[in-house]
Design a protein around this nucleic acid. Sequence first.
DNA 1: CTGAAAGCGCTAACAC
DNA 2: GTGTTAGCGCTTTCAG
Lengths: 347, 347
Amino acid sequence: MFPHCLKMHKKIEPTIHDIARELKISASTVSRALQNNPRISQKTREKIALIAETMGYRPNSMASNLRNKKSNTIGIVVPLINRYFFASVISGVEEVAFKAGYNVVISQSNDLADKEISIVHSMLANRVDGLIISIAMQTTTFDHLKIFRKKNIPLVFFDRVVPEIETNKIVVDDFMGAFRITQHLIDQGYQRIGHMAGPQNLTTYQDRKKGYMEALAKNGVAYDDSLVVTNSLTLEDGEKAAQYFMGLPDPPDALFCSNDTTALSAMIYVRDKGIRIPEDFGIVGFSNEPFSRVVTPSISTIAQPAFLMGQKAAELILNQIEHKEKTFKTLVLPSEMILRESSARRK
Amino acid sequence: MFPHCLKMHKKIEPTIHDIARELKISASTVSRALQNNPRISQKTREKIALIAETMGYRPNSMASNLRNKKSNTIGIVVPLINRYFFASVISGVEEVAFKAGYNVVISQSNDLADKEISIVHSMLANRVDGLIISIAMQTTTFDHLKIFRKKNIPLVFFDRVVPEIETNKIVVDDFMGAFRITQHLIDQGYQRIGHMAGPQNLTTYQDRKKGYMEALAKNGVAYDDSLVVTNSLTLEDGEKAAQYFMGLPDPPDALFCSNDTTALSAMIYVRDKGIRIPEDFGIVGFSNEPFSRVVTPSISTIAQPAFLMGQKAAELILNQIEHKEKTFKTLVLPSEMILRESSARRK
DNA sequence: CTGAAAGCGCTAACAC
DNA sequence: GTGTTAGCGCTTTCAG
């Protein structure tokens, strides 16, 4: 049927030229037909579609990307892919990107500044049409991200943002979440409320601390520096901090932890000391990790709409890419307080 | 310093030709120098590197990819990105791919056959150098995957594999895991052991069921079809199945669930009926989800080395891509039995 | 409605 | 050691 096919190895991918030759027409016609350009007659379009199908033709996007100076790809970099929050954001990004015909390339910084810089440069080389990023805990210089502003490549920060770079940002209302859940502890009758704070170079954790302080202030409770521990919020950090808190001459009777992980390890430590939760000690976390609902006692926490955040991030970046939207906004998604057993002193 | 830079908008990306013109040499020399080709003298190489740096040059991989007929990209498609197991596999893939200089593009099928097909075609159009995939629950036809074999594009299945396609595969030892944990229930003195099975079109769940049956057989326990429920393994399915089991005239006294999610919801249902776990009723899951360790009682389960699986998948595919490895292997990673409270009748 | 031709940015065989 | 040249496969003016 296609004589010169005989010469071809099966691995050779057909191109528009192969189709053109087959039909004795030009490659440009094929190209236009394949894009449903109305200038091409119905008949030729159908003929071309048929041959393309039978030859197993797949457009080579490397070629069209080069020609169009557009990769149809959006990059996303997160500290760690297999953290529920980040995985959910990625899931949201993928969903809307795929619908819009974009690819999503992914990379993880492992919270290391060097890896983040290296990844970002690689994304730049790959000419991503836009980048969605939550910066690494360790990152303190931002030249690698400022390039995007200089080159006018769409950039969206989510969750962990860089205040000094003017671009689109999506965060949850960390301050309000922290404020409300601290207020909740106070309402439950807890008197000395400690706080497990995260790295203070990240606004995320700054805001959670501020919310905590504000709630104390609003209720006329003096801020006590000895009741605040700052660490990296790992399981181990949580246990160590709990040990510190419970060793104080006048220990707290409740703890607001900046994530659920530390809330959990602190809770286990406190419980193992024979202290009843929530009767004698209240504990709350942040992030609404899946486990916080199913542990015993279940942990009160602040839910962040991760999947929605991913969707919004993708929408923002697509707006920048396709509609050349120039104005930047900062989306503050509402956080939701989820009350469970760990802080339910008053039923 | 670079006079014609004045004419350039900031958005124009410099190319090797710009560098060449600047230094009054040819583009090929620049290209070679940038690749550290030894044929270029030390001096010119340094000059070029310097100018490239000051001009903010970034190689355009769309162009080199086209020229080299290689996208330096590996695709990965999973049912759902924000499931811990899959996120961990992705994380493993990303790690070794990045080190090898490859990009990872990601997509999720949502367990829908149509979306999977559409994704795979898009990956094909994007000329991924290889594809790593765990198929959707719903997928029953495999033409979209057979293309890879035909076109000789490296393909690796993990976890949910397609037996009829000959290629690299990575699975965990589902049979052995199921066998051992059922045996464990028997050893703990449970007499009537039920099984919550997953969709039987997936070998993964077939093997888990087989392991269960084999353990019963080995111990001279007759297989009872009324003690096996097959469903989609959601939280709701688990609860419904538990309700069914406990409503039987002669209900089981232990349950081997094909995942931790159903183990959890079944456990909650049983516990709420006032039945003590593990004293009166034993329950075990599969997958070692993060929550299974921290719920009360903690759930005995089978750990799958997800991150390792991702690393291995990436290694396999890179071997195919770079060393033109032709032979296919099926890697069976060992599963690990993790004993916790939910099945600890005998201390 | 269709074709010819140029070029996206890079690489590599071939010259010298 | 360096330059010339010819594409990779596609899109898109411009011409007819």
